[in-house]
Design a protein around this nucleic acid. Sequence first.
DNA 1: ATATATATTTAGGGATGCCTAATTAACGGA
DNA 2: TCCGTTAATTAGGCATCCCTAAATATATAT
Lengths: 230, 230
Amino acid sequence: MQSERIEEYLETILYLINKNKGPAKTKKIADELKVSAPSVTEMVQKLAAEGLVKYTPYYGVELTEAGAIKASKIRRKHQVLEKFLADVLGVNKTDAHKEACELEHAVSDTVLEQVCTFMGHPEICPDGNPIGQGKCCTTVEEQYPVLSEMQEGSCGIVSMIKLPPADKDRLISLGLMVGESLVVKRKQHKGSISVLTRGTEIALGNEIASKIFVKPQRMIRGRVRRRGRH
Amino acid sequence: MQSERIEEYLETILYLINKNKGPAKTKKIADELKVSAPSVTEMVQKLAAEGLVKYTPYYGVELTEAGAIKASKIRRKHQVLEKFLADVLGVNKTDAHKEACELEHAVSDTVLEQVCTFMGHPEICPDGNPIGQGKCCTTVEEQYPVLSEMQEGSCGIVSMIKLPPADKDRLISLGLMVGESLVVKRKQHKGSISVLTRGTEIALGNEIASKIFVKPQRMIRGRVRRRGRH
DNA sequence: ATATATATTTAGGGATGCCTAATTAACGGA
DNA sequence: TCCGTTAATTAGGCATCCCTAAATATATAT
């Protein structure tokens, strides 16, 4: 497994390219990573030798296909972790960003997906940028039914809610959030649906219900096991 | 900030000392860390120079006070993270252990406490060993009231449940778990108490209620904000 | 166009943490 | 006790990633 320094450089290069809409310059990279310019030149030559960047001396650094993929992966890792730290653990934004920088290199791909799934595949990072989609995100979208398509009596666990924050908050205040188990009570006219969550029955219109992805579950003694019980 | 390699060595040395009830031998450390024996000798000399271990050539390595403290901290980090991975994210035990090995060096002290708090200051690691207490754990115990001491009408968030797993599970099935908000409805004779959680009223005996630590909260529009809403 | 400032690269080293090979110390059985 | 085996250490090197100083290329202003 290669150095986490490579990841750091790639991530920075991607960031600078996006920011300046042009090749990443040696000095900018050096400033960003708080290393000297010669260190950057050296590392960039190494990255070029590994086929991760295209390096044109005195011009700047561009990402190759392979480099861009790697960089995007790390960026996604960073964002998912930042979101997790801020939203789940309540770390403040500034710290969350810094901590995510450290963690992004230590978290495996598998665990990252599990973190993402735990949060219901969030779409926006606390820093305001959209979070890149991962395999786990598309799997949910492609393979899990939306609430409005579920049959009466079936049950499952809310896995993703693809709604704007305001709607999400409203659902949360009704007790319907990612990770929560639910049972479909009644399907009504025009796609409306009523579901049971933790003893409360909620009625949802089709526009809402068609944006809630649910992982189907078997019923266990009248109660669906909730994940994350500690 | 010093190398994460030092942390790895210290953790291993602590592990071996506990396991063999004697000084950690060079070869054992080498095997454990999958490095050569000379690498161990070298690093151990460095650790000794920094006052973290007592190193007696041909005899073995012991931890100094400072080294033991550092090692215990890392051990605790590892355990809390392992618990988190296994219980919250659902990573299998073997993987959880491996992943925790990577993460333990990247997670800051602050974030670790927040992870610990999120889980309600667990006492046992999935590996079966007891988890060392941190500052956050003792704070809860010393500063937060237990449920049985709370006044009628007061509310808060369940922060720690100091009960055996079986009792915990029973509470979970009643909807009472760490992170859940509750309102004290009625205090009854002999320390019994009834609480409202998510619309359900639960009655608890004193033995149980006196082991549930609650972080007091102000009521917000009739509903206590739940942490970790994503 | 040219002088000056800035960016970049080359040259030469240093710290860290790992390795193999060779040497030396400790241990256990005949 | 002595010898062979195993463990530990010393010696010498390598890869990674960083640095400063000096040289060179580029950009800017007059």
